[in-house]
Design a protein around this nucleic acid. Structure first.
Lengths: 143, 143
DNA sequence: TGATATGTGGGGAATAGTGGGTGAAAGTGG
DNA sequence: CCACTTTCACCCACTATTCCCCACATATCA
């Protein structure tokens, strides 16, 4: 999956139909703390934005989150070829080079630079292997 | 049991009928932490996804699990020959070569690369022999 | 051993992904 | 307010991938 020279990225065809009906192809792209882009269908984003706005303004972490997420939020419409164009500033934020990885996460998508994604994968797995104890929320999980 | 050059894998015939009625041949394939693929009938997967989505987003271990499992989840329909096609990225994640092992695990299946499977078999048994105590969840088990 | 079911392989049409040209629109400076 | 430059959306063309179908090999059972 590749960004072309114009910063365009093809949405996987299997999601397109669903996206067209859930948000008429109107997507909001933004960043959070991790070096990846978050892509929300517009109606989903509106809920997120409400939650963000409701956070306590005097709390530093909350303020940072608001500034990053709301500040970078950009609408990107799906074009007639099924692609979205990612503004340069967002590409920078997520450190996107040519090769990217797009992963669905429930209501949203994440877009990672391929090498960043792979590095993180191994790092996360190592973390988990080295932690002797699993977080309580995972202990009883049966998959 | 072998993957062909196009990444297709025949589902054992004895499961097909059951799968067709339980999920109309709609399967979700994904990965967890081990180097193997997990195959769920669609309705089963939906329950799993709910559990995953409900995990705390800010917890690192939970986030890793979500990203891996939900992120890699791909629908693979059983074709008219009773096969499923495994996307390249999933083959990589599980280190699948040509020869694979498919094992039923209650509601789901696991797909292992044959050599990886054999290596792990012996490794796991050694681990258990060397542990002095059994985990509490196994203590009271009667088989 | 023949008949049926299962596993494997591959051709070719249809679909999806990628790259680039061109005109319209927006931004910039005088 | 106009001329110039840059950016962007739309369209077309090419390539890669995926899906559908048919054919054959192998295993299973009567």
């Amino acid at each position: 999956m590749a960004l072309d020279a114009k910063g365009r990225l093809a949405m996987p065809a299997r999601y397109r139909e669903r996206l067209l009906e859930s948000c008429a192809g109107r997507l909001i792209v933004t960043v959070e703390f991790d070096p990846c882009l978050l892509v929300y269908p517009l109606p989903e984003w509106e809920k997120i934005e409400e939650k963000l706005v409701a956070l306590p303004s005097m709390n530093k972490q909350a303020r940072t989150l608001q500034r990053r997420m709301i500040g970078h939020a950009t609408e990107c419409e799906i074009d007639s070829q099924g692609r979205i164009r990612l503004p340069g500033i967002l590409q920078e934020q997520a450190g996107l080079d040519k090769k990217v990885v797009m992963i669905g996460q429930g209501k949203k998508f994440e877009i990672w630079d391929e090498s960043v994604w792979q590095d993180n994968q191994t790092a996360w797995l190592d973390d988990i292997k080295n932690d002797d104890e699993l977080h309580s929320s995972l202990e009883s999980l049966s998959l």
